[in-house]
Write a protein that binds this DNA or RNA. Structure first.
Lengths: 269, 269
DNA sequence: GCAAAAGTGTTTCGTTTACACCCATGC
DNA sequence: GCATGGGTGTAAACGAAACACTTTTGC
């Protein structure tokens, strides 16, 4: 490693990025944390992140660090904000720019350092390093606001999902309960969801041209997802990543954009 | 000036702050800009801001620079976000953390450098330096979202204001028109506004115990505000900073907090 | 077969929207 | 006195909330 020194007329803070990765296991909203092997805060958990390079934007830096530390290749990071408390890092003056990202279940793959990365339900979080609890609260807050304006829910689900899954996700994010029937109506009447007919999924070809088999084979069908990895979600080992009954839907980006335009970019779920 | 050098093992970006100050003259939403005297972007206009000191948070830095450059002593800055495009400053790698602030009319005072500061209506803005147009758009966007959740309108008005004033402000910020009667109802039924009865204002004492003089002397009454400075707002010289007829209201923070709590921190105007 | 969850439609209620009149002010 | 703008009430329309029943799934 080079040992060049860089000299400036005035002191400069170090600049890092951090990334709050949200995931959803069908029941709880989760975040991805990395256990710190070194002091300070050794043994505490922290968001993936690191120092910003001079040739990348903060967003690019956050993406790079995320990839390096967890193997996740996520785009569409949303900026949470800059955190600049003078003593937030005991070693040095460090300013961090935090983002959040949405991981689909299928996106989770073991990266090089992934052994140290682990998902935690947001109400079962361990002690966090630095001011990461503060970053988390801000990220959560922003997620809750953004979900009213952006199709965030769909970023956290697989390509095809059921309405109850979507509802549970909204409830987990917003911390409130919806009436099942009203939620259906509201979602469907936006027109941004496509009913996943058999003929639409390439998976259906595994099973030929069955009509009216809607719910009978969903379990098998979903089990057929070759791309679905074994998730390192900590709790609830295996029960509901398999059990997925009911009608499947998918998110229609085109219709969504139109809907958004019609509503003056205000999506209020 | 010191010529000490500061040396680091890895290169570090410079970190600045910028502050988008919003103001309202009764008709238009305005922002405060400073003309750049030096290259780059000499002659362009920019938001007040500057380099961050090592012993201050970004918010403190933005407040300090704002005070230094415009004389404005504003608190409650809201972070807009960090801007980190690699080439946003042609001289050096500079990351800026942007905020917005709300100036009451009465807050505007000529500071040392204030001669160079000028208010512009947001649809009559000059060419901006750096990526400040980008910062402006983000700030505007955030203001539009925040006004649904925070009592922003009242931060931009004087202590006492009329309903039409408040409505014009909301319309200027959101860029839409409201029905006057519906706006009244909606605002009043939140309960966060106090009707400014004569006996509530110390100014009323100037006029003794007149009852039922509601609208007759408001002009004089308002003219009696010793603290109202001569505003450097560029357009519309003098007509409506004086003409303020109609019932006056004031913002009741206590009731607002209660209202907010009752509505789960969701204010939807 | 039975319990639990998924899927659908209707009624009620409250909020938002649209709209009309009177009063006060200022020329 | 006439034009402009401020202050209030009411009816229609829309969207949200409450709610019950049937079907499907999994043991």
């Amino acid at each position: 490693m080079e040992t060049h020194n860089y000299t400036y007329k005035y002191p400069r803070p170090a600049v890092t990025t951090d990334c709050v990765v949200f995931g959803f296991d069908g029941h709880d909203l989760k975040i991805l944390l990395i256990e710190r092997g070194l002091d300070p805060y050794k043994g505490c958990w922290a968001f993936p992140g690191g120092f910003l390079n001079m040739d990348e934007t903060a967003e690019q830096g956050a993406m790079r660090e995320l990839k390096e530390e967890t193997g996740l290749d996520l785009h569409n990071l949303q900026q949470v904000g800059a955190f600049s408390e003078v003593d937030r890092d005991p070693r040095d003056r460090v300013i961090t720019i935090a983002f959040y990202a949405l991981a689909k279940k299928a996106d989770v793959q073991g990266g090089d350092d992934a052994a140290k990365a682990q998902w935690f339900a947001i109400n079962e979080m361990p002690r966090l390093a630095f001011d990461h609890d503060c970053i988390f609260r801000k990220a959560m807050q922003k997620l809750r606001i953004d979900i009213h304006f952006e199709p965030i829910g769909f970023g956290l689900l697989d390509e095809k999902f059921t309405m109850p899954e979507l509802q549970r996700l909204y409830e987990a994010i917003l911390g409130i309960q919806f009436d099942r029937r009203n939620f259906y109506k509201k979602m469907l009447q936006t027109g941004i969801l496509d009913k996943a007919e058999d003929d639409e999924t390439e998976l259906a070809t595994y099973y030929g041209e069955h009509k009216e088999m809607k719910c009978e084979d969903t379990e098998t069908l979903f089990g057929g997802f070759a791309s679905e990895p074994c998730l390192p979600y900590s709790t609830r080992p295996d029960d509901d990543s398999r059990r997925r009954k009911g009608t499947h839907f998918s998110f229609n980006k085109q219709r969504y954009d139109k809907f958004k335009e019609d509503n003056n970019f205000r999506l209020e779920f």
